[in-house]
């Protein structure tokens, strides 16, 4: 439950500087907020509004349009199983049903230990590798039920943390434009 911390304010200012108009940084800043707290808090949205120069309602209006932004706590691992057409005809629904049993929760819910949230996903652009899923937006392809069980057991045992950061972090590499390489200001 927090506003952006000092480090993220610095990052936010850098991101805002990438755009001709500050409001364009709304989505990137909401990602920063979600990275910091695991979901986008009201305090963070108010802070984002101050930074980009609009109202908190406008930030919420934008953020609430997009599936990836969560407004309440979710599991450390967001498990998203694709059931769209290419996955559906190759076992996507069965995989999701199996995931519900393995995790002991219905789609859309979080396990009681706070480790996993299960979601049904729309097409993830891995159609030739059906059925597929993502854990915090990292792909697993042609997933069998046994492989799913193994993945969950390994995540519970604390494996894969190098590859899969906690929910909220999407890309771990940030773009940084060195000030001496930046295009001349007149473009803004």
């Amino acid at each position: 439950m927090a506003r952006l911390n000092a480090l993220n304010v610095e990052r936010a200012k850098e991101l805002i500087g990438h755009y001709p108009r500050p409001k364009s940084a709304t989505i990137p800043l909401c990602h920063l907020a979600q990275e910091q707290d695991g979901f986008v808090t009201q305090e963070a949205m108010t802070h984002v509004a101050e930074l980009v120069g609009c109202t908190p309602a406008e930030v919420y209006g934008t953020a609430s349009f997009y599936e990836m932004f969560k407004f309440q706590s979710v599991g450390k691992y967001l498990v998203g199983v694709c059931t769209n057409i290419s996955c559906m005809i190759l076992g996507g629904d069965e995989l999701l049903e199996h995931a519900e049993k393995k995790l002991g929760v219905r789609t859309g819910s979080t396990t009681s230990d706070g480790l996993f949230t299960l979601e049904e996903m729309e097409c993830l652009a891995a159609c030739t590798e059906a059925p597929c899923l993502q854990v915090n937006y990292r792909y697993r392809e042609r997933v069998t039920h046994d492989q799913f069980d193994q993945l969950v057991d390994e995540l519970r045992a604390g494996k894969h943390t190098n590859e899969i950061p906690a929910h909220g972090t999407v890309a771990r590499v940030r773009q940084s434009i060195p000030s001496d390489r930046r295009a001349s200001k007149d473009v803004f």
């Binding site: 989505i27 997009y66 990836m68």
Partner: peptide, 24 residues
Amino acid sequence: GYIGKNIMGTGWDLDVVLHWGAGA
């Protein structure tokens, strides 16, 4: 020096900004 200020000595500047969405 492929992107940014004075690209390859031509005097042309270009910034390329990576932006990512949030699911829609």
